[in-house]
Design a binder for these strands. Structure first.
Lengths: 237, 237
DNA sequence: TGAGAACGTGAGTTCGCGCTCACATTCTCT
DNA sequence: AGAGAATGTGAGCGCGAACTCACGTTCTCA
């Protein structure tokens, strides 16, 4: 009874040789995705680049989608552990400091391999059709929520779940938008600063209206130690 | 010289019959996209649903991508004029009021035809490859920037271009994220409120730290270029 | 050492896609 | 009316994709 299983499940590598084949296939897929995009990643092409035969590809991956999914899993697993470490590293810091570090880390991760993250982000919806619930997203959201929890009393949002959803997707989406439209933003410090401001401003409790045309009412117990912005009479265009 | 042009350009409908055919094709494409997704929208299928022959499709659209692009153009043109009206309607309001209205309007638009907006958003990157610069995005960004301009003096962000980019993509992306992962959010008032809080919090000038405990001085990784010492009398500007 | 499991092969099958073209029909305009 | 432009038709071509299968090779382990 060595007949192949109906459809999705495939043989798992048991020998190290097989594991190597598997890795080579995933690596080749990633390479092609980066260099030539999704449409160029045909199974035959992947096999050729990986130095194996098509048959071998289908030993371990039930379809082309499974192939791309494997690439996603590999790199998202990295991102996940990185971020976990990041959370651990900032456990004692203030919210602001923590966010500054974490956001910068996330930006750096994507900037390190922009094309890959771009292609994967674009293919995410396609993957969602095959995988009803995305465990990666679930874990990410849970991490953010756990991070917010101790500060809950001092934060404005009442639903931490929604807050986690909003924060996570804001940072992730803006990174991808920059990746696609404004690649130069990724390396700019001020972009990271803006992301921080966005998240922090969201988390802070409400305050009075900003009056139109009036001076900004700084109503704080203590003047901000933040370096005052250089006053400019003319805004940049 | 009535020979067909090499590739991209196609005949434009001159008679009303042709215009009707064209409309039917676009409508059919949209229908299929909504019902069955991008992969099911083959040219033959589109033709069948539209009640015309494949040849007719290729009279007016040079490729399958052009077909999808036409669908995007149709619905984005609607969204654009809607938003333009929205901006006009809130010209006298405060920033907060204006944002509340505009964000709610945008959410309502997407909620009215969620599947379509979802599919189109997913195909946007593919379209970008064919259309170097997206005039829709450009106009949207310009509208947001123009909207921000009169308030510039009271806003925190120094670069209005970056601010427009961030605000537009934040709202757009979060809407799509909700569309895909939390469809129930789209109709919830509190979600719209959170989006408003996000944008307003971002635009407002900075203030004191949220944290009350031992607060280390906020050191932006990149200190202000000119400030030699902490200016205590920073009433700014 | 050898039997059977795991692994690897790649020519070949199937399929449906995007797209064309030679031709038919309908409209416009004098 | 009728010439010519505009519009519409759909069988079919070429192609390359995803995927299979009958068979060879290598490993494992009693």
């Amino acid at each position: 009874m060595t007949s192949s299983t109906p459809l999705p499940p495939r043989r798992k590598p048991r020998q190290s040789r097989a594991q190597a084949t598997c890795d080579a296939i995933i690596t080749a897929t990633a390479q092609i995705l980066v260099r030539d995009g999704y449409d160029a990643a045909s199974t035959n092409h992947v096999a050729r680049v990986a130095g194996v035969s098509v048959g071998s590809v289908y030993q371990y991956f039930s379809s082309k989608e499974a192939l791309v999914m494997a690439v996603m899993d590999r790199y998202r697993a990295e991102g996940l552990t990185d971020l976990e470490e990041g959370f651990a590293r900032v456990s004692g810091a203030t919210l602001r400091e923590a966010l500054q570090l974490l956001i910068r880390q996330l930006l750096a991760t994507k900037a390190a391999n922009p094309r890959l993250h771009q292609v994967l982000a674009e293919q995410l919806p396609r993957m969602r059709q095959l995988q009803q619930v995305d465990p990666y997203a679930v874990r990410m959201l849970r991490m953010v929520r756990t991070f917010l929890e101790p500060h809950a009393r001092t934060l404005r949002p009442r639903s931490l779940d929604m807050a986690a959803f909003i924060i996570f997707n804001t940072v992730e989406s803006l990174t991808h938008a920059a990746l696609a439209d404004r690649p130069e933003y990724l390396a700019r410090e001020d972009f990271a600063d803006e992301l921080c401001a966005l998240v922090i401003g969201y988390l802070q409790p409400e305050r009075e209206e900003v009056k139109r045309g009036g001076r900004p009412p700084v109503r704080a117990p203590r003047p901000a130690p933040v370096a005052a912005r250089k006053a400019r009479s003319s805004r940049k265009r």
